[in-house]
């Protein structure tokens, strides 16, 4: 059995990229106390809008920009439901996911009626020819800029402190003069923009086209990763790498058919099962953000 280790690491980094972007997006919104189940739909929206804008303009940069804007809009919408109206977070998040996916599929069918369009120009990899370093710039930025900057912002800046205060105890934050509404709106809009970038990476960098199963549960993986990481940046990145590594290994095994004993589906199911196991073992000691799933209303 021969496994090309370098190719494996290269594939792992590519597969982990959308999980890092969207996972950090989810982490930011959850830090403010909002479980954002619209992540699956927001990634789908980013993937579709990114593709559409890139196809129409001929430039993947325009696509990426459009994806970011669509993510901000989706985040604002989610914030309107759960912050302004104070609706149940999981029902509105799930509803928004279903709505966004339906809108994208509707538009896709309308515009392309069954054929499979491809982009003329998509993002190309840097350092072509190497096995590990031949990655898209979004991969480099995700690991080397986004993750450390988010870590630093959450840990050492006033913005991070405000997010933490609102997420842990919104009454106390409000008394201290921090606007719960504004903080959660910003967290949801920024986080959703990152999720949309994660989705757009799939169409603009990896695939260069759009398919109806493009996201296929990656949003749910991110939810698992964030809780697995207990709302910390580096463990979430590590989790994304582990998941992506298993996915890459599974793909390589499927190609080489070295052994059929371990079905690929089992390896793909592992991250979900690992999160549930971690929750079970951690039990009551898993500290959810204090204002998790709650809407703020002044008494």
């Amino acid at each position: 059995m021969s496994i090309n280790l370098l190719a494996l690491i290269g594939a792992m980094l590519t597969i982990a990229t959308p999980l890092v972007w969207a996972g950090i997006g989810e982490l930011i919104t959850e830090r403010s106390g909002v479980l954002n189940l619209s992540i699956e739909g927001t990634m789908y929206l980013g993937a579709f809008i990114g593709f559409l804008a890139a196809a129409r303009s001929g430039s993947p940069w325009v696509g990426l920009l459009a994806a970011v804007v669509s993510g901000v809009v989706a985040g604002a919408l989610m914030a309107f439901f759960v912050v302004t109206l104070g609706l149940n977070q999981h029902v509105s998040g799930l509803g928004l996911t279903l709505l966004l996916i339906a809108i994208c599929e509707f538009t896709f069918r309308l515009l392309y009626a069954g054929d499979r369009p491809t982009l003329d120009d998509k993002f190309t990899v840097l350092f072509r020819g190497t096995e590990v370093l031949a990655q898209h710039w979004l991969t480099y930025v995700g690991f080397l800029v986004l993750a450390p900057v988010t870590w630093w912002v959450l840990r050492s800046t006033g913005l991070g402190m405000r997010l933490h205060a609102v997420g842990e105890s919104f009454e106390a934050a409000d008394v201290a003069g921090i606007s719960v509404t504004a903080t959660r709106y910003v967290a949801l809009m920024v986080g959703s923009a990152l999720m949309a970038i994660g989705g757009a990476f799939l169409t603009l960098a990896v695939l260069g086209s759009f398919t109806l199963d493009i996201v296929s549960g990656r949003g749910w993986v991110c939810i698992a990763l964030v809780i697995f990481a207990r709302w910390r940046v580096w463990p979430a990145v590590l989790g994304a790498l582990i998941f992506a590594g298993m996915d890459a290994l599974q793909l390589q095994l499927a190609i080489t058919s070295a052994f059929d004993a371990v079905p690929g589906e089992l390896m793909l199911a592992l991250p979900y099962l690992a999160v549930i196991a971690a929750l079970a073992i951690g039990g009551r000691t898993v500290r959810y953000p204090g204002s998790y799933l709650k809407a703020y209303r002044r008494a």
């Binding site: 479980l35 189940l37 999981h90 549960g217 749910w220 993986v221 939810i223 698992a224 809780i227 199911a269 979900y272 099962l273 999160v275 549930i276 929750l279 079970a280 039990g283 009551r284 898993v286 959810y288 998790y292 799933l293």
Partner: peptide, 13 residues
Amino acid sequence: IDEVVTTLLLNPV
């Protein structure tokens, strides 16, 4: 343990 996350994650499984 919060059931929202555990029930949700068992769907893709």
